[in-house]
Nucleic acid binder design. Structure first.
Length: 129
DNA sequence: TTGTTGACCCAAG
DNA sequence: TCTTGGGCCAACA
């Protein structure tokens, strides 16, 4: 089968996103697009952002997902600042040693996390990670 | 089953 | 640098 993801017997795309995000090392960051690519969905960046958004609402994350380590491809925090979310994210990153600009910008050349390969992700999703 | 909704990405201007 | 416009995707009503 090629494209049917209506009823996936495995983890949903969201869970796959969470699994990958949990692998981001402390003090490093990556982008939504990169996470999407790691999951074999090069164009699903928006869905990744949506997944993290849902995470913030549900507030049910055990173990917790370090969502603050995910920013956009321009190295900027794109979290809505309604709840002070963007500021919170910046604070969390700084606490990990990541230099965040006053304009909520991070130097990807320094802090970018390259990511994982598909095979490693398969292991993680299979519970061997 | 269809339409809507985003914490996106990329190429131009 | 910043702003626009078009494209892509998954979850949900």
């Amino acid at each position: 089968m090629g494209y049917t993801r209506r009823v996936m017997d495995g983890p949903t795309f969201y869970h796959q996103v969470y699994a990958v995000v949990r692998r981001i090392p402390r003090g490093r960051v990556t982008s939504y697009g990169r996470v999407a690519r790691m999951l074999g969905r090069p164009h699903a960046a928006r869905a990744v952002g949506y997944a993290l958004s849902a995470l913030a609402q549900k507030r049910e994350s055990a173990p917790p997902v370090p969502w603050q380590r995910v920013i956009n491809s321009q190295g900027r925090i794109s979290t809505p600042n309604m709840d002070g979310g963007a500021d919170l994210q910046a604070a969390l990153l700084r606490a990990e040693g990541v230099a965040v600009d006053e304009n909520l910008r991070v130097d990807l050349g320094v802090y970018l996390w390259e990511g994982l390969h598909l095979l490693e992700i398969d292991d993680i999703l299979a519970g061997r990670g």
